[in-house]
Design a protein around this nucleic acid. Structure first.
Length: 301
DNA sequence: CTGGTCTCCTGATCGC
DNA sequence: TGCGATCAGGAGACCA
């Protein structure tokens, strides 16, 4: 389940192979993983009942960067954008959302993975997008301002979040802090694993109301988020099931998880058994002693 | 406007 | 060994 550290690891590993490469041929094997301008937002009409857009928007090879030279690979939160320059010198982008099980992988020949939905033949090497569950998607951005538009709703990147920005985004949020952290418009890049890890490090109960946190606690939380993100990034991310970098390397940060997936195990800080619950429809693990629902009232005088 | 719930999808795992 | 039920969750759609 790629979150910011995994996505950044993928970004770095594919960018190293893609810079300056020319896309000779782009092949889309499943139209429904692609979102094009004019498509209903969220993909291919994934509304109740039916799939498939009634009026599929036409896609050109150039929309998939065919003929372009790769200039850079950007990331904001969990969103990746591959930036290409076409023959006229104009920049355009292809967005990649990995979702739960998406993979972006560079290689020399045919990708070894199953569920491959798009392949790019480069002047040197091959890039492939695969995703068994298809929660991920590709997005066509014909101009850089279309990409900007898409990224605008996102909050600041979690890797560098500062307390002031976090406090500003949490002001007036009456929902549980964990729900707010998972909201990409509050903060971009945190998912279920790192939300639990950061809240544990901060000593904050996942159901604490976001707008009731003091400035001090928000500062602690911002520092915990930055620390968890950067430590996980240094470890190449967390490989729980099938996450791999853009060159097929697993991450190792799962060995450093303190609470995620450890309900019923002793708290690494105090030994109390970790509790499992659900917050915002997500499995949630926390220590009821280290992360009390209410702090003790500070002593008066 | 905010926040809660539903939905998409496949593979791993569990109980019988 | 087989098989149905359950769970995993990112993010847009939908609804109160």
């Amino acid at each position: 389940m790629p979150e910011l550290p995994e996505v950044e690891t993928v970004r770095r590993s594919v960018e190293a192979h893609l810079l300056g490469r020319v896309v000779r041929l782009a092949r889309l094997l499943r139209r429904d993983v692609l979102v094009a301008p004019g498509d209903p937002a969220g993909g291919f009409s994934r509304q109740r009942g039916t799939r498939r857009s009634a009026t599929p928007v036409s896609i050109t090879p150039a929309d998939l960067l065919e003929g372009a030279t790769i200039a850079r690979v950007q990331r904001l939160g969990k969103q990746i954008a591959i930036i290409g320059v076409d023959r006229s010198g104009a920049e355009r982008a292809l967005g990649v959302q990995l979702g739960m099980t998406g993979h972006l992988e560079v290689g020399r020949g045919e990708p070894a993975t199953t569920h491959v939905h798009a392949v790019w033949m480069l002047d040197v090497g091959v890039l492939a997008f695969s995703d068994p569950r298809r929660f991920g998607s590709l997005r066509v951005f014909r101009t850089m301002s279309e990409l900007e538009e898409h990224l605008r709703p996102l909050g600041p990147d979690a890797l560098t979040i500062d307390p002031e920005a976090l406090a500003q985004r949490l002001a007036g949020a009456r929902r549980p802090i964990k729900a707010a952290l998972l909201d990409q418009s509050v903060l971009a890049g945190v998912g279920n694993i790192y939300a639990d890890e950061a809240l544990f490090l901060s000593g904050i109960h996942p159901e604490a109301r976001a707008d009731r946190l003091s400035g001090d606690r928000i500062s602690t939380l911002a520092a915990s988020i930055r620390r968890v993100m950067s430590d996980a990034l240094l470890a190449g991310g967390s490989t729980i099931r099938d996450y791999r970098s853009g060159t097929g390397e697993p991450g190792t940060y799962q060995a450093a998880h303190r609470v995620y997936g450890k309900a019923g195990h002793p708290c690494p800080a105090c030994g109390e058994l970790l509790r499992g619950s659900r917050v915002a429809q997500r499995a949630t693990v926390y220590c009821s002693r280290c992360q009390p629902r209410r702090r003790k009232r500070p002593a008066l005088l």
